[in-house]
Design a protein around this nucleic acid. Structure first.
Length: 153
DNA sequence: GCCAACGTTGGC
DNA sequence: GCCAACGTTGGC
């Protein structure tokens, strides 16, 4: 089993939005970064657990836990000129972009903020999230980091 | 293949 | 709203 962290702008799609979806499940569309795509397409397996992270928010940090409900399939928003995620270079016969389905598991009792995570830079030293300038919206989380962070809750 | 210009992310 | 970081694009 693998662990992940996925960022979402809370104004655009929050943990509460995920919880409110039918079956508490939503497809994670709009990933247009190759590194993030590769992880989704190649490494995210059904049942993997995900930290749900709010970026560009009043309170920035990990707010809940979700799980991978369906493994990668083509991101159909890339084929639709009416969506902001349209990419004419993504051919339905050879899709460029993929997405997974994410299901709500639970909210954390409190938000574990980015600021707080930074204060544990010893334990979390090699966590990509804490690297300056990191812009990856999906990243792997080691089992050790996953447990450590949950213990902060 | 290099690199300047440009666009986006995301913390502050 | 600002701006640092960084990925992508496209001319050469």
């Amino acid at each position: 089993m693998n662990y992940w962290l996925m960022k979402s702008e809370s104004d655009a799609f929050s943990i509460d939005d995920l919880k409110a979806m039918p079956n508490k499940t939503e497809h994670w569309d709009g990933i247009r970064n190759y590194q993030a795509r590769n992880m989704m397409r190649d490494d995210m397996k059904k049942g993997d657990l995900v930290f749900f992270y709010h970026s560009n928010a009043k309170t920035i940090g990990i707010v809940g836990i979700a799980k991978v409900a369906n493994e990668a399939y083509p991101d159909f928003t890339a084929f639709d000129p009416d969506t902001k995620y349209f990419d004419p270079k993504s051919d339905p016969d050879n899709p460029r972009w993929f997405m997974v389905d994410i299901k709500f598991v639970r909210k954390l009792k409190r938000t574990i903020t980015l600021n707080e995570l930074k204060q544990h830079s010893d334990a979390l030293a090699d966590m990509p999230l804490l690297r300056k300038g990191n812009r990856l919206s999906i990243m792997p989380v080691s089992e050790a980091h996953w447990s450590f962070i949950l213990d902060l809750e």
